[in-house]
Computed example of a mutant assay.
Amino acid sequence: MIYSILVVTLLLSFYTDIRSRKILNIVTFPAMLVGLIYYTITLGFEGLLFSSAGLLVGFLLLFIPYLLGGMGAGDVKLLAAVGALTGVTFVLHSFVYTALVGGVIGLILLIRRLEFKEISPLYLLSFFYLLKNLTSGNDDKPRITFPYGVAITVGTLCTFFLGGMT
């Protein structure tokens, strides 16, 4: 049952993030609450700790990037909901897959944006150049952004289907 809630939460968030660039509180907060209540009822105080710890870890993993303007609050709350529904270990594995998926998406978007005739191969290989172009915009080229809920959804589903990384 809890994984059904997880999948519905992810798919709804994926859809709304693609359509409107928003992950809705009406989706994430009930998912957090369901995780907390479910584990408390089934496992008692240990279950409450399990779900609370997952929620807190999921929240903290994306809180700093949110403070730095790298993502929206909905992304933070979505990963917190994943943690509340699955616990610390699962949300940590999801975060790793999410970061990998997000990095690949970001790199693809960056490569599509770059005009290769203007760049020497040395700059193309430079991590700092890529990072600078991903995170800062200038007047003619706006900052590259994408709905990070997509990466969270795919990363979490990778954890679900592929298992944790050991």
Rank of each mutant, 00 (worst) to 15 (best):
I2E: 00
I108F: 11
D139F: 12
S51V: 08
D139I: 10
L85G: 00
L48C: 10
G54M: 03
F160R: 10
T135L: 15
K141V: 10
L60G: 09
V101N: 05
L55Q: 05
T40H: 13
G44Y: 06
A99D: 02
V150Q: 03
T86S: 15
T28Y: 03
L122H: 13
Y123A: 10
K22P: 08
S51C: 08
Y97W: 09
L68F: 12
G87H: 04
Y129I: 10
G44T: 04
L134K: 05
Y38F: 11
A31L: 07
D139V: 09
N133H: 15
T89L: 10
L33C: 13
L62G: 02
M165H: 10
F90M: 01
G44L: 07
L134R: 04
T156Y: 13
L49R: 13
V91T: 13
F116T: 06
I119F: 13
F146S: 04
I2S: 02
V34K: 14
K117M: 12
S13H: 08
I18G: 11
G44E: 09
I152W: 02
L55F: 14
S51T: 07
L12M: 10
L125K: 15
V91K: 05
S13C: 12
I105T: 07
A53Q: 15
L12H: 01
V154E: 02
A151R: 00
G103L: 05
R113M: 14
L43D: 09
I152T: 03
G44M: 07
L130V: 14
A80M: 06
H93Y: 15
V150F: 09
G149D: 02
G54V: 02
L107K: 00
M71R: 03
L92W: 06
L67Y: 07
L55V: 05
L78E: 01
F160S: 11
K117W: 13
T135S: 14
A151V: 01
V96L: 09
T28Q: 00
V7K: 01
A99T: 13
L61V: 15
T159M: 05
P142A: 11
R112P: 03
G35M: 02
L33H: 10
S13Q: 03
I144M: 05
S52D: 04
L130K: 15
F146M: 01
I18D: 03
A80L: 05
V88T: 08
Y38K: 01
I152D: 01
G164T: 04
A84P: 03
G137C: 04
V57A: 05
L60N: 06
L56I: 08
L122R: 13
I5H: 14
G47K: 01
L92Y: 08
I26N: 14
L61K: 05
L107C: 07
V57G: 07
T16V: 08
V8A: 09
F161G: 07
F146N: 00
L79I: 06
K22R: 11
H93F: 14
L43Q: 10
K117D: 11
F116H: 05
F59I: 03
V82K: 00
L85D: 01
K117Y: 14
T16N: 03
F128T: 11
I105L: 09
Y66T: 01
